[in-house]
Design a protein around this nucleic acid. Sequence first.
DNA 1: AATAAATCCTATAAACTTTATAGGAATTAG
DNA 2: CTAATTCCTATAAAGTTTATAGGATTTATT
Lengths: 136, 136
Amino acid sequence: MISKKCKYALKALTFMAKNKDRSTPIFSSEIASKEGIPKKFLEAILRELRNVQILQSRRGKNGGYRFNKPPNEIYLTEVMRVIDGPIALLPCVSLNYYAPCEACEENVCSIKGVFETVRNETLSILGNTSIQSLVN
Amino acid sequence: MISKKCKYALKALTFMAKNKDRSTPIFSSEIASKEGIPKKFLEAILRELRNVQILQSRRGKNGGYRFNKPPNEIYLTEVMRVIDGPIALLPCVSLNYYAPCEACEENVCSIKGVFETVRNETLSILGNTSIQSLVN
DNA sequence: AATAAATCCTATAAACTTTATAGGAATTAG
DNA sequence: CTAATTCCTATAAAGTTTATAGGATTTATT
């Protein structure tokens, strides 16, 4: 399961993609009310997305958020990794968040293989789906 | 991520499949020590697997656990659903644990589609992989 | 009948994660 | 100077995970 936070992030980005031709930045307050996301929680999410250069922000009056790269170049894998961490179902099979399984000798690990397959299939779907494509 | 509990369940079942030709049932204590699983925690797991007819058990001296159906007919989906619940990444996309997303009108949900695709791919892998196949 | 050895069951708890909320600081436009 | 926005830190409530404790129950054997 992805977290609610991650769902909020995807919803927020999709909302922004839907409105990407506006001349002004988008307020967190607008996204929060239109998408039903708690405002302060959403602020934290948007800040994380800005920290990894998915978004850019402007403070002060008439501030708000914009994409830092076109939404058809932002893939779900990137967003999900930022918000939720690993996509793989086992730590020892994660590409971006690898961690060894403690008491498990990996060379002979019985369950590793199938979860590598799942990871590959999942990444090939989520890594080829852009935020923009969710709008269309 | 699957839980440690689920990993323990898969490891335990794999261990049992590896030893499926024994004439006597297998003790939880043996599995616990050989696989490095906390004994009491493992007992709870094995009981759950017995409750759903994956295993059968005998109490008392010379008791222990056996498969209730051949391990080549036990698929990872079944085990994972018993222990961890839904396999899908979104509640509204789960086949066995469906739950509606609260403030999300599903007909127009932007993110639902891609997670259905992920679910289908994941199920086709995990649903065709048996416990027995992990041994081979 | 007594004993040993196994599963079964319930309650509890420590640690961690998730999902926020509160209160303001900093910045910017007008 | 004011209003409106993002930014930041601390806190907390609730839920989940990962066990542990202590025995109850069952069964085979002696």
